[in-house]
Design a protein around this nucleic acid. Structure first.
Lengths: 183, 183
DNA sequence: ACTATTGTACCGATCGTTCGGTTCACTATA
DNA sequence: TATAGTGAACCGAACGATCGGTACAATAGT
């Protein structure tokens, strides 16, 4: 994907994650990107749905580079967990920015977009579980903790939005850290 | 509110919490309730927005009756927490049903609906914190734990949707219980 | 000259909303 | 008791606006 197109996709991603799939119109996307409708259809022949699925694919790449990678690269479990939490905190603006995956997961209900987002969330939990298992955590417990950490991240984002403050998210991150590092 | 109208509101609530505000059309509401569009405007002169805000008001009443009440009624802190978790688990179908407040919170972005939903979520965390304080938990810690419990509930719902399984939600509830009851 | 990219104008469908009008139970008056 | 009137509840049809999407000529870059 070219840099220029990646920028366009990024702009569209910011729309979707703030307002959900149904809350964003082609007019919105046209205005935000500065491209006319026909230009958008040149880049995304599949229309709005292709725009959204491309956005999810880019999100998958970003997740791999900034969230999953630290989980494998750190020296200790503590370093891995802190690396992920640090990246996650940056990605979500300290709790101020909503999660694209969560937005699309609830917007599209049972469409293919929701399934793509769901798969990425499941992968996230699995990657965390793998990092724990690599440090000797038992299989089932690692799986549970992986799901729990993702739940704390997502729930932290929701409560932070409700409180219009990054505090709940930071608390949730601290708890996630404690859960993942507990022996 | 009459029983008949309460039933209508309940049907509309189930639409909104599954598909969000923008994902539900008046045609959907008309079909689901069996009322013509114009009849809907007889009951809700303010249109779609009044329908949604009425739905939130009903949700507030349900929260009071089924979630906040157990937090004040139980004999011990354990009984209070278990009472809330039991109600919450029932309300959300063991993790299968999405949360209306979370749906409207992300759908409407900065509209009045989102603020109503946000206020209710904040109230939820506050009610939990109050129950903890009544049992001697220090003020700031009670506040943190209240936010944390709500985050675990909301995050558990999201992960359960992603996994298409009630397991993550149940794990999140167990963790919330442990957090709230920890000395 | 050729291809990639864009703006303009437009399409049918659907959006939330409103209009005109019907039904029917209830009430006041003769 | 008979009748005229009232208002709540409901409906189908249609409104203007906007939706996602398309056709096509013009432009830009090579």
């Amino acid at each position: 994907m070219s840099n220029q197109k990646a920028e366009i996709v990024d702009v569209i991603a910011n729309l979707f994650r703030r307002r959900g799939y149904d809350g964003v119109s082609l007019g919105d996307i046209s205005a935000a990107t500065g491209l006319g409708k026909s230009s958008l259809y040149h880049h995304f022949p599949g229309g709005k749905e292709e725009m959204a699925s491309t956005v999810v694919e880019q999100a998958a790449c970003n997740m791999q580079d900034f969230v999953f990678a630290p989980l494998q690269a750190g020296d200790s479990l503590e370093a891995k967990v802190d690396g992920m939490i640090s990246s996650v905190t940056r990605i979500y603006g300290g709790g101020d920015d909503p999660c694209l995956l969560a937005s699309l997961l609830s917007s599209d209900e049972n469409g293919p977009l929701a399934e793509k987002a769901a798969a990425l969330i499941r992968l996230w939990a699995e990657r965390i579980a793998n990092a724990l298992r690599a440090e000797g955590v038992e299989r089932k417990e690692a799986r549970k903790k992986g799901m729990l950490a993702v739940a704390l991240i997502q729930g932290g984002l929701i409560t932070s939005k409700a409180f219009a403050s990054g505090e709940p998210f930071k608390e949730a991150m601290a708890t996630a850290r404690a859960v993942l590092l507990a022996r």
